[in-house]
Computed example of a mutant assay.
Amino acid sequence: MAGGKGGSGKTTTTLGLARALSRRGAPVVAADADWDLPNLARLASATADGGEPAARAPTVVDAVRPAGELRPDRRGPTVLSAPDRPGDLDAGRVLGALAEAAPDDSPTLLDCPAGASPDAAAPLRVADRCLLATPLRRAALRDAAKTAALARRLDCPPVGVVAVRAESVPDGVGDLLGCPVLGRVPPADPEPLAAPSVRSAHDDLASRIVDEYGADRWRVA
């Protein structure tokens, strides 16, 4: 999950999509790859339902330690937080180890750092594809286009874009970013993930992602 700037909706969309895929029976892994500004596990805990315990999430490093086994189940996404001491680790090496540890038939979502920085490059090098999340403001779209260009250079082409906090999507967004618009998430405050309209939008997005990319790769209904 990549985006042009902080606040573009990446983390909320990562978690919402992970839960939507889980509702389809997929054993999902969702990992925080934004180690400087990590909030995926915090958001998961704050919005936990019966399928996701609010206990401290394991870190990405915990998941790839030799003594541990990454065994995602179908009751809810396995959410992995950022390392406790990220400055001591090579992000590319850790995320590469995560790719090896995750079962081949499990959707594995990485919540990337914003923009086209070197920090964003590490998860994009590991991922097969990226999904762009962006508001429809001019500056946000411009930055999302830069992120899309970086992803393509790193052999991680965008599978599509999701417009966040959007009432509608004008023609031309897909052409601007060079990939199809796969979803639109409506605005919903103050807790978007609790809104039925947002949940429905993430369910629709999950269906499109499976159809476009994961039908013959993942264990998903």
Rank of each mutant, 00 (worst) to 15 (best):
S200Y: 13
P103E: 09
P118S: 03
A145M: 09
V169G: 10
R208L: 09
P58S: 11
A151V: 01
R208V: 03
L136A: 09
C130Y: 11
R125W: 00
A101N: 05
P187A: 10
R199Q: 06
P107N: 05
A55G: 00
A57S: 11
D143E: 08
A194Q: 13
T78H: 11
Y213M: 06
L132K: 07
R129W: 14
P113G: 06
T108W: 10
D36L: 15
L37C: 07
W218G: 00
S117V: 01
A26C: 01
G214T: 06
T47H: 08
R23D: 13
L43C: 01
D175T: 03
A120E: 00
R56W: 08
G87R: 14
A215Y: 13
E191Q: 12
A31W: 04
D175S: 09
A195D: 14
R125I: 04
P157M: 09
L40T: 02
A144V: 01
L98D: 03
T78S: 10
S200N: 06
R217T: 11
K5C: 06
L154P: 05
D105R: 14
A144Q: 07
G96Q: 06
A188H: 10
S197E: 15
T12V: 13
R65G: 07
L95K: 09
C156E: 10
V159H: 07
G68H: 15
D104A: 13
G183I: 08
V181S: 06
T12D: 02
A46W: 03
R129A: 07
A101G: 01
D111C: 03
A140Y: 09
P77I: 07
K10N: 09
L21H: 08
R165Y: 00
R85M: 12
P27F: 11
R165N: 00
A149R: 14
L89I: 02
D189F: 08
